[in-house]
Nucleic acid binder design. Structure first.
Length: 259
DNA sequence: ATGTCGGGCAGGGCCCGA
């Protein structure tokens, strides 16, 4: 079972590049972020025509997450629990049953800039809520995959120019500590466990020639419960997608699970 | 550290978010 996460930065703007990547990479499941679309406007037939079931949790203009799956999606829920007043569409969950049942969480973690400030407070509060949900899911003792744009650079090795990020919400100590608290519940970050070396990125800014200079950061992650980590066969980043026509500023990150 | 995008609103540029 190949599972990918991809921040597409607007579904309308990616109506060509996203299907092209699907046809080439053939993932079974894709967790999408930043669809920037209401549910009714999401071009679901683009994906249904390719054999995917489509579930969205959108909002106007900003944020928005979705799941594309060749396996039927069960027990779908929308929204991160813990704050009924939070109207931002950043979390979706569903279960797929292959050889075994796998719980999928697609997430778009708040950026948090500028820090300090209310946006940073929201990021940290959101991560505390995510930790609660992550702990609940662990108690199920089943394969769980939490995949998305975490807006977290876990370590210096995950940035081409770490010094440029020291005051950024993606790299501040409190952000990284909150990420580690989730990992320390018992989750495994899939890509890093397969590739210990530095220099692998999932995002290159549109500005200042970041892609041409390979000035990237690794902020898109798949976290695995112990039961999912036991099934991990492979992980990778489809870097070449960033050099394609009309690309997102993120590229797909994927895992292959024996599930 | 900014050489760019995407989307909304509006009705052609500007503002916001990243």
């Amino acid at each position: 079972m190949k599972i990918a996460t991809f921040n597409i930065n607007g579904i309308k703007a990616r109506a060509e590049a996203l299907p092209a990547w699907l046809d080439e990479a053939s993932p079974d499941i894709v967790l999408l972020q930043e669809i920037k679309s209401v549910d009714e406007a999401f071009p679901r037939e683009l994906f249904e025509d390719r054999g995917y079931f489509v579930e969205t949790h959108g909002q106007k203009s900003f944020n928005g997450v979705a799941i594309l799956s060749k396996i039927p999606l069960e027990d779908l829920t929308r929204g991160l629990p813990g704050d009924d007043a939070d109207e931002q569409a950043r979390w979706i969950e569903a279960t797929v049953v292959g050889k075994t049942a796998v719980r999928l969480c697609g997430l778009y973690l708040p950026n948090g800039n500028p820090a300090p400030g209310p946006k940073y407070d929201y990021k940290l509060a959101w991560m505390a809520r995510m930790k609660e949900r992550a702990a609940e899911l662990l108690a199920e003792e089943m394969p769980v995959v939490m995949a998305g744009d975490y807006n977290i650079i876990p370590q210096s090795e995950d940035a081409a120019k770490p010094a440029a990020w020291v005051e950024d919400a993606l790299f501040l100590p409190d952000s990284r500590a909150a990420f580690r608290r989730i990992l320390n519940l018992g989750y495994t970050e899939a890509f890093r466990t397969r590739e210990p070396r530095p220099g692998h990125y999932s995002f290159w800014d549109y500005q200042a020639g970041a892609w041409a200079k390979n000035n990237g950061i690794r902020i898109d992650h798949l976290l695995l419960s112990p039961q999912a980590a036991d099934l991990l066969n492979d992980a990778g980043i489809d870097k070449a997608v960033r050099g394609g026509d009309k690309p997102s500023d993120h590229v797909p990150v994927w895992i292959e699970l024996d599930a």
